[in-house]
Amino acid sequence: MSEIFALLGFGPEGWAAALLLAAGLTLVLSLAGFALGALFGACAAAGRLSPWRLPRLLAQAYGTLFRGIPDLLTIYLLYFGGSVALTGFSHLVGIEGFVGMPTFATGTLAIGIISGAYQCEVLRGAYLAIDKGQFEAARALALPPWITLSRVIAPQLLRVALPGLGNVWQLVLKDSALISVIGLVELMRQAQIAAGATREPFVFYTAAAALYFLIASVSTRVFRHAEEWSSRGMVR
């Protein structure tokens, strides 16, 4: 038992500092991926709601593709395919040799693309849930389109979308564990490294599970507060 405490402590043989640092990277990676996903998701949602056929089809293909293939495959494809594409591109602009995709950028991009596909559906659903009367009222008040979007639609959109976005965030957090396969030393990878070095996998996977659970629980609370804040004007 005391051995386990030594392994998980801050001493010279302890992995606590390394695990906490890796948990921090997991958080940063998830946040960056989620933010990028919000951008992709918003673009795709705009595409899905577009009056034209082509953007609708493209956005739908994007959603179907990245929600349909396992995230592990998406990550591997980006990691290996991304480097090939990047090397090809840099040859075009005159940089010789191999160009590697940095793992953090690959991880962020992978999480961004995957979570964007899910965020698109959340945002689209929220947009459709807004009462048509709101648009009509804004038009009746002769509000310019930008004001309509930022002052009337966006706040309501956020309120309706927040629970769904909270779900996607949890998905992102757990997807970040899969980024370990491309060698980025986030929480999961750090646990694997510690397990390999000490041959005590059980201890370190349990520790990793506890840290993931902690991050997930705290973010659940944050989202709940955000939901309450965004619906403070609503009559219950």
Partner: peptide, 9 residues
Amino acid sequence: VFRGTPLLV
């Protein structure tokens, strides 16, 4: 617990 930890773990 099961929603808060990765399936891999």
